[in-house]
Amino acid sequence: MARQLHPKPQVRLDRALFKARTGESLLIIAYAVCLYLLPLALFVWVANTAPTVWVLLCSPLLVVAGYGLFLQAILGHEGFHFNLSGNPMHSCYLGILTSSLLPGFCVTGYFVDHWQHHRYSNSAKDPDYRHFSRYRTLASRIALSRLLATSNYLQATVRLAFGPLSSPSPLPLSAAQVQRLARCNIACQVGWLCVYAVALWQIDGLLLGFCASLAVAFLVSAFNAYQEHAFSEGAEAPPARSRTSRLCTWLHAGANFHLEHHFYPAVPCWRLPKVHRQLLDAGWYTDRQYLLEKHFVASFKYATRRHPYRGDTVND
């Protein structure tokens, strides 16, 4: 039986925080795409026009581009939480379109697990807990955990797209709707891969920049699960952690406030900083500072073996 150590805060939020607005979502999508493509384009331009020393000096641009690429996956997650549009299916389609920019990541299959992750957070029924808690070392967490999870999401999407209709649907949508989304997801993956292939063929220097950005996105996603859910042995088992640095908020578009997301999954990620401030003002975090990580670099320590991905807690 899971323990309810951190029930939902009894704080009344502004209802406007929960309202999905397509226009606002499109601006966030544009921001995420720019965070990915602009640093990548600048690096490629430098690589084609400047001496090697300038290429090396500009290599941090690829870290930013990698975060921008990872942000596409976050927006796919937001789409399946129905946070990108007032129409649930439109929200999912927007999430599929943007998240398919990340090669191999199929958000439809991912969200079959993620929906259960929210229902049974960090308990034996939580697919994320069962998967990510198996990896104890930094090397296995970085090299294997996300790679195998992404493979599972791809396989799940293919089954949903071409297998028999499941009854009931694993998502809060009809089985037929989930099948259409899965097929759209595969089509978008193929479409973006074709776009990448043409771009890589036509643009000198893009291959290096794209591969490096993809590698950064992979590493960021591998660290991310443990940054959000791994705690030291001594801490009470909470549902999630929020990372509060401004740099993290900029790179994750607010999705770094992951504890707030677990409490209020219907609030779009870019509004979660407002939710966090309301919880701070209400005093909810006064004796819960261990649920926060205030420093960007320090948050990477949670992928080490000193911080297990722990279970036996719920947050509803």
Rank of each mutant, 00 (worst) to 15 (best):
A215P: 10
A139L: 12
F132N: 02
D281V: 04
L165W: 03
A197K: 09
V112M: 06
L251F: 07
Q10R: 14
A156K: 14
W270V: 09
F82V: 08
I203Y: 00
H276Y: 13
P273Q: 00
V178G: 05
L101W: 08
G109H: 04
S151P: 06
F223H: 15
Q72R: 10
L13I: 00
L291V: 13
V297S: 06
V158L: 15
C34M: 13
V158A: 10
A187N: 05
E78F: 04
P238N: 08
R130K: 12
L259S: 05
G104T: 01
L138I: 15
L94G: 05
N48V: 03
R246F: 15
L62I: 08
F70W: 10
C92M: 02
L200C: 04
F80T: 09
T137W: 03
S133V: 13
F263W: 01
P239D: 11
C194F: 12
L207Y: 08
G254D: 06
I96Q: 02
A199C: 11
R288F: 05
E24S: 08
Y135A: 05
Q177H: 13
A222D: 13
F82M: 10
Y302N: 15
Q227E: 10
L13M: 00
D113V: 03
V158Y: 14
R134T: 10
G66W: 05
L148C: 05
Y196E: 13
Q179Y: 09
R3H: 13
S245A: 08
S100M: 09
A212S: 12
E228F: 14
W250V: 08
A32S: 04
P239S: 10
K274N: 05
R119H: 12
L200H: 09
L219E: 06
F263C: 01
Y285A: 06
T52Y: 07
S123E: 04
G66D: 11
R310Q: 07
Y226C: 02
L173N: 03
P238W: 05
P9T: 01
R180K: 04
V64A: 11
A16C: 11
S140Y: 03
T313P: 04
W250G: 12
M89D: 10
Y196W: 14
C184P: 05
T244W: 03
A161C: 01
A222W: 03
V158G: 06
R310C: 03
T286P: 04
Y31N: 08
S99E: 01
G68R: 01
F70Y: 13
T150E: 11
F162H: 14
N256W: 01
A266Y: 06
V64R: 07
G95C: 02
P127A: 06
N48A: 13
